[in-house]
Design a binder for these strands. Structure first.
Lengths: 157, 157
DNA sequence: AAGATATTGAGACTCAGTATCATTGTCAAC
DNA sequence: GTTGACAATGATACTGAGTCTCAATATCTT
């Protein structure tokens, strides 16, 4: 099930490049193959490293130049959790999702969607004179329930 | 109404330093006076500039060393909007607020509160087995309305 | 094959933030 | 008040993610 989706994403991106009169180069192929060949979140530097395993000629500059194209195409999502690097999600097209609950005790991150939330955000923004472009909700919590069930592998304290 | 609050915050912070056996220095006084003498959000570099107007001996290092103390004391809130600098809110103790709309074109930031939002977040979190500890909603938008009124001094493009 | 131009890699650069370290300031004990 | 332990300081070197520049190269259309 995952395979075809990944290929579809790759094809979509190549089409995106074509539509913008951008060229399909060996380096971009290596980067795109890497991005859509994993399910994991990654940083720019990780992507550079992985892409270089496919094509050692890929440079840092090209990775940083390609990432905005990937996010612009809507196939990859850029996330900022307040660290000094950004994290990219290659599954965005399949599961577009900007809402995260992070357990402060363990590393569990749960994503969720909510139409009611989207609607409320739009309502509030419009009322304040803004047009929503993107949104990100982060809820820091403790997974009491899961702790009881032994699913939360508490790390600190 | 704002005056006493500001002084209260200042006193609280000096008490916080004392409780941690940290020293009250001229530079920290200048920084604290600056922080609690404004209602505006600020960056570390802005704080440095402003504090230097009160005491020219304040260094960048001291500002960056004092900011974590201010946030640790709970009187100032650190925010990260995905730009390459952090923004600090000196009103945190009075109006704890984690919902922001950021205009991507200009630097305008609007805060808002919403009981409906809080309630919805609680509802969703509980449903997923979490207990909310804190939350942060960031909406990136364009202030179309304000642009029309000439209030959004669009910078790029 | 040729030409217009998009793309590239290398490395210089930016900029917020951190680390280092010799010097100075604070404050409690005397 | 002096003293002294040590917290705090400024200057400055450094870090690390990300950007910019530019001459050289690759792509794609004709």
């Amino acid at each position: 099930m995952a395979e075809p989706d990944r290929n579809a994403a790759k094809e979509k991106f190549l089409g995106f490049l074509e539509a913008k009169n951008l060229r399909i180069t060996a380096q971009r192929r290596a980067i795109v193959d890497t991005v859509f060949g994993t399910d994991q979140h990654f940083t720019a530097e990780q992507l550079l490293e992985w892409a270089r395993e496919k094509d050692s000629s890929v440079s840092r500059a090209t990775v940083y130049r390609t990432l905005p194209l990937l996010t612009e195409s809507g196939l990859v999502h850029e996330m900022d959790f307040g660290k000094d690097y950004k994290i990219y999600d290659p599954n965005y097209a399949d599961h577009p999702n900007h809402n995260h609950i992070i357990c402060d005790d363990c590393d569990k991150i749960v994503e969720f969607e909510s139409d009611r939330l989207d609607q409320l955000e739009n309502e509030i923004s419009t009322g304040l004179g803004f047009k929503v472009k993107s949104q990100q909700l982060r809820i820091n919590a403790s997974c009491e329930e899961m702790k009881r069930l032994g699913e939360c592998k508490n790390k600190g304290n």
